[in-house]
């Protein structure tokens, strides 16, 4: 899979995320602190709500609609009503830009 330039690192606040739409799919790109970044699918596995409107707390993303929670490092669902894991994708910071490896 190719590495995609998602955004500048400064475009994402610490403990926050942005939505990335690419090739007809939507992703969520997270910045925890400094250059620690992650990427997952952008829709909650429970009801397909955009996670970009949710809340990042430590390494957890909370779905804005029902508070299903996922660990952004592994994609694992850690609070119902989310039961199914999110897909995760490699992410890195290169020269102040966030790159993600997505299909």
């Amino acid at each position: 899979m190719p590495w995609i330039d998602a955004c500048a690192l400064v475009d994402i606040e610490e403990e926050d995320l942005v939505r990335l739409d690419h090739e007809g799919r939507t992703y969520a790109v997270y910045r925890i602190s400094g250059e620690e970044v992650y990427c997952t699918d952008g829709l909650c596995t429970h009801e397909k709500v955009h996670l970009a409107d949710g809340l990042v707390v430590d390494h957890t993303i909370e779905c804005p609609k029902h508070n299903g929670q996922f660990d952004v490092r592994t994609g694992n669902a850690i609070r119902s009503p989310a039961c199914e894991a999110l897909k995760t994708y490699p992410a890195r910071v290169v020269d102040g830009r966030v790159h993600v490896e997505i299909p």
Partner: peptide, 10 residues
């Protein structure tokens, strides 16, 4: 009721 209320919000 956790699932019921999630549906109520959906």
């Amino acid at each position: 009721w956790r699932w019921s209320h999630a549906r109520h919000h959906t």
